[in-house]
Design a protein around this nucleic acid. Structure first.
Lengths: 141, 141
DNA sequence: GTGTTATATTTAGCTTGCTAAATATATGTC
DNA sequence: GACATATATTTAGCAAGCTAAATATAACAC
């Protein structure tokens, strides 16, 4: 077992991940979004009116994180919150028109980033990569 | 071109990355370290007495980030700082004995994480994965 | 020597992340 | 109904990240 290969993989993963995050963050700025908010909005584009707990589960992050992100997105006019009618503990999150309009530009930027990442990696190689990524994902869950 | 494959890759990358970061963060806690600090220390283990700018370049992050990390590590007794003798603008960062002693436990935790990530991925597959990761890394630089 | 530009670090303030604790509401048990 | 437990969200405080600006020092041009 060659430890250098393993280390290289791990380090590349870190580097790719942080570089992508930096680039994407820069890119989202002109939409007045921060990295992380896009995923939250993406979930709402699939269907809004969901609870904050549902967002936590989907995004795999802690409740205060969602509270703060939701607060910020609300202040920027992309979403609004309403207390559930049956359970006063529960807040449901809805998209504004402005929030809905973000879908195409965000999708576009996402695809741009993706193409840059995978440039010159063949369709066959992409299938292999997907398989390997999925297996690593499973290893960690 | 199948967009689903590309999306899957990107999403797995995000998930793997954030999950690894969460697990590693938890793991480092008992060493009284935060994620990010380990990379800074790793650089110093290779040779201390370097400047903060050198650390910024190595870690690919901004100067205030290094300033804050260095400050925290100094307060915890892992490093100390001295102003350069020839250029009063420059701070050089040195390891304490305590900082040096962290190397083995941090390396151990790093390897644990790595093995978990790559479990049941064959040596051949690891070579392929390394190649693909390196190419993606290059795509982003 | 003076003024301008460049460089290294720091300060201030923002974000997404986290943990811990607090607050309010709902549910279950007796 | 009273109490204990569970649940959803919020508050408070920490971190690594960032940008923008400030501070101090060094280098360069005249």
């Amino acid at each position: 077992m060659n430890d250098n290969v393993d280390c290289d993989i791990r380090q590349s993963l870190d580097k790719v991940s942080s570089q992508m995050r930096r680039d994407y963050s820069e890119s989202l700025r002109e939409l007045k979004l921060y990295v992380g908010q896009d995923n939250l909005l993406a979930r709402l584009w699939q269907g809004d009116g969901i609870t904050q707990m549902q967002l936590c589960e989907h995004l795999k992050c802690e409740p205060p994180t969602v509270t703060n992100m939701v607060k910020s997105l609300e202040q920027n006019g992309f979403i609004y919150r309403k207390r559930d009618e049956k359970d006063a503990r529960v807040m449901r999150i809805y998209l504004t028109d402005e929030g809905r309009e973000l879908q195409d530009p965000v999708d576009f930027k996402w695809k741009q980033q993706q193409e840059k990442l995978l440039h010159s990696i063949s369709p066959e190689e992409r299938l292999i990569l997907r398989d390997l990524m999925k297996r690593m994902e499973k290893n960690l869950s």
